[in-house]
Structures are given as C-alpha cells and as structure tokens.
Nucleic acid binder design. Structure first.
Lengths: 238, 238
DNA sequence: GACCGTTGTTCTCTCATGGACATAACCCTC
DNA sequence: GAGGGTTATGTCCATGAGAGAACAACGGTC
C-alpha cells in the first residue's frame, strides 16, 4: 500500500489555531520587514493577512510590532513571542514528521492489570507494559521502530535499566540504508518486531541474519489504542 | 504557556486525503448498515456523503459494499479495506496524540560530521548522534522524554547496546503521577534533560533527588530541525 | 404488479473563506 | 505643506463546501 501518512500540525490557545499557514505569514513578515510586502510575496491579500494577525494576537499576545508612518512609511517586525511560537510549531512539525515516517510494529493484546495510565498487556508475544487509555480491555499496541533498542543476548542487566519490555528473537531481515538500517526480529509472532538502528550499531552488535538479539523498549514509549471491535465479538469489559 | 499542541491526521493516496471526518462517516455506515442512515445520523446530507464515498473509493479501492433494492431496500457494509484504513488512521492518530502530549528536551548544536541522514552534532551537553535533514549546519535537537532510558551509573555496557547517546547527570526533580514519573537530569546545560519513566523504574533504579543517573537515547529517536536564526546573532555560516 | 427503503444523480440555495479594491489614518522626509 | 509607503478598515465578488430537495433506478417482499 503506497499510503502516505500526513498531518496538519497546529498550536491551539484560547480556541485559536496557529498553523503552518500562519507560520509562513509570520516568517514572510520577518523576511520582508512589512506586513504589506509579506502578503504580496505570499500572493495573499493584505486585508486578510492583517486581520489574521490581529486575530492571532488576541489569543497569543503581541506577535508583530507594527509601525506606520515614518521614513519608508513604516514596517513590521516580529516580537520574541512570535519567534517562540514559530519555533514551537517547527518543533512540533518535526516531531510529527518523525512519527509519520517511522514504521511501527503492531501487537494485539488484552489488559490484565492496570495502575493508573500504565497497564500490563498480555499479547501473543508476551506481556508488555504500556500506556493505555482507561476503559479499554482489548487494545492494540503500536511500537515505533525508532523506540526499540537492540542488545546482545545476556548483556542486558535485568534490574538496572528503566526499559523493561524485552523480547529475544532471531534476526530475519536487515535492510540497510546510507547510515540507518531496519532490523526485523522474529519474536514468536506472525508480525516481526522491527527496530531502526544505525549501521554502526549493527556492526558493534555483530548482527547478521539468523543471529539472536534482544529488543527492548520502554513502557512509556508504547502507546495503546482501543482495539476496534469490528471483527471481534467481545464487549464484556467495564 | 497554556499552549495546546493539536493536529489533524490524514492518510494520503493518489492525492486524496482520508481524514477523521471520512473515518467517522465509514464508522457510521458500519454502525447503521446503510449510507443513508449514516449520513442522517451524522447530520450530513446524503448526496455529499455518497459522493465522498465514491471519491474515496477512486483512490483507496472498494470501501463500501452497496446493495440497493431487496428486502428493506438494501444497505451498505464496509469492506475489509475500509476496516484496514480505519485501523491505520486510528493508529496514526494514537501516535500523534502521544507526540502531542509528550514533553521534550531541546538542545541547540552544530553538525560536525555527516553520514547520509545521520549526523554527529556538537551541543553544549556533548556530542549527540541524530537524524538530521540534509543542508543544515546549525540545528536544534528535540529529545522526547519517553525516548530517554535511565540507567544506574556503571551498569551500562559500553559496546553492547544500540543506544549510544549517553549523558550522566544528577537528578534535580522527580514529579510522580499515578504510575508514571518525570525525572529531570542536570547534564551540565541550562535546560534539564527530562525522562518519562514508570514509578516502578524509579524504585528499582533507586533514584532520588541528588542521585546520579545515566540517560541514554537512540540516535534514530533524536530528530533535528534547522535552527532558526531569529534570536541568535550568528549569520556567519553558509 | 404494487410497495418500500435503499442507492445514485442532479439541481439550487446558503454559508464561509479569501482575494480585489477603495479609503482613511499615520508619520517621517524633503 | 506635499509626498510616500505603511498600517488599519470596510465593501464587493469569486470560489468551494455542504445542506436540502427532487427524481430515477433497483430488487426484494407482499
């Protein structure tokens, strides 16, 4: 399936959403030194852009220091708040991009024990600790490939790390890119557990097809979603 | 700042975007057994909903098995493809939600070496290996709290794990929730490195205020974004 | 064959978004 | 005081999304 994951990131405050379109407007103001030049550079109307700035400022505080009259007619510059806002959205976008591009392993399971937002989930591969939204018993766990750490068997101390979801398995595939590689592990389930690691790590861990490796991932990095009941017939939970 | 991170997840195929609104339509069809009942249950017009289904199917393949005439006049059910699509969007949404809620530590740095998409970045806290988009020298690293693993000092084998970004520091704060806790580490920089771990882990690692701990995180879980030049006065680079 | 509730198709109407344009206010330079 | 380029504000129009209504086609049941 050539199915692309996309998104539209936004920062929300007091019901007003600051999105990528707003960000490009602020950046254009920063670049051109005036709201007028910014709008025309973006091919947007001045009036809408100006009103949007006012709208944003009502929620997010001062963003654009505007000056009219004076030599050159005036101009506008961004406030520190605007720069912070831009940086925040940029960061959020980067994070989302990471998620959208990252492959993940999916395990179905049932919650057997819960302690607040954390739960113990029984899956076909074994028990997993994960963050589970309350109210769901049958869940689907998504484990991001970049959250999986690989180790050599026997080398991992049992009690001295905070990552304690652990599966041992056989390496069934290694796909190498420039500097990164995707390692698939057979952990006794239909689906393979994939880990995204550097090629460097593959060398130092001496990984090759057929070799044994331990994959570990943190409970806090494992998010669960309620399993859709479409196929299953169970609705017995609370 | 009570600034909420939000998003709008969508799956893209052949230029058509399948978003949450489409998902709710499919779910309503699944629930009510007919496109007609689904549309009116959602308060939408039938004609639009019907057209949207056709539009989606042109890109994503058969989604709704429609039957007209017959006893009861007919009805519609979802295909397996539709269920898969729903599950995929649900998963993506769950992932994004995780990101939006997760706190992160930000480090500024400069790229000193690059190997494909992977780069070595010099930061105030030390050198970090991270995934860096090509073309940027000054970057800002975002390290998600749930991607940071904690260890007791000395316990971590040097060469036998694939997580090799490592910082030792002193615990400066522990905020405990029900089952999770946020640990702040002083790693010699202004900003604290925060890790999201289970309370259980805090106990087994014997963490307390003032104790030393090692934080490690994978290069592949560390994404960089080009640093905006706004506040800084350096513009000497390319 | 009539009935019925569904799917399919087409039309008009409304509403929100945003561009295009005009005008006023501003304030420094000349 | 005139000029000039900016911010600020209002009005008109094009576009698209979606509601609503009307009507044909369908294929079981009665």
């Amino acid at each position: 399936m050539d199915l692309d994951a996309g998104f539209d990131a936004q920062l929300d405050k007091s019901g007003v959403e600051f999105d990528e379109r707003d960000a490009s407007l602020l950046r254009a103001i920063d670049d051109h030194g005036s709201l007028n030049a910014a709008a025309s550079a973006l091919g947007r109307s001045y009036s809408r852009s100006q009103r949007r700035v006012v709208e944003l400022e009502e929620a997010f505080g001062p963003l654009v220091a505007r000056e009219r009259g004076g030599s050159g007619g005036g101009g506008s510059t961004l406030t520190d708040g605007a720069h912070d806002l831009l940086a925040a959205l940029e960061r959020l976008t980067a994070e989302f991009t990471g998620v959208a591009e990252t492959e993940e392993t999916v395990l179905d399971g049932t919650v057997v024990e819960r302690d607040g937002e954390l739960a113990t989930v029984e899956t076909t591969a074994g028990t997993v600790r994960a963050i589970v939204p309350t109210g769901s018993r049958r869940v689907r766990l998504a484990i991001r490939a970049d959250a999986v750490t690989l180790h050599t068997p026997g080398a991992l101390p049992d009690r001295e790390t905070s990552a304690r979801n652990r599966f041992q398995g056989e390496v069934t595939a290694i796909e190498s890119g420039d500097a990164l590689a995707r390692v698939s592990l057979d952990i006794g389930t239909e689906v393979r557990l994939t880990a995204l690691v550097t090629r460097e790590s593959i060398a130092t861990l001496a990984l090759s097809l057929g070799s044994e490796a331990i994959a570990s991932f943190k409970a806090t990095a494992t998010r669960a979603i309620p399993a859709q009941q479409g196929t299953s017939d169970e609705r017995t939970d609370d």
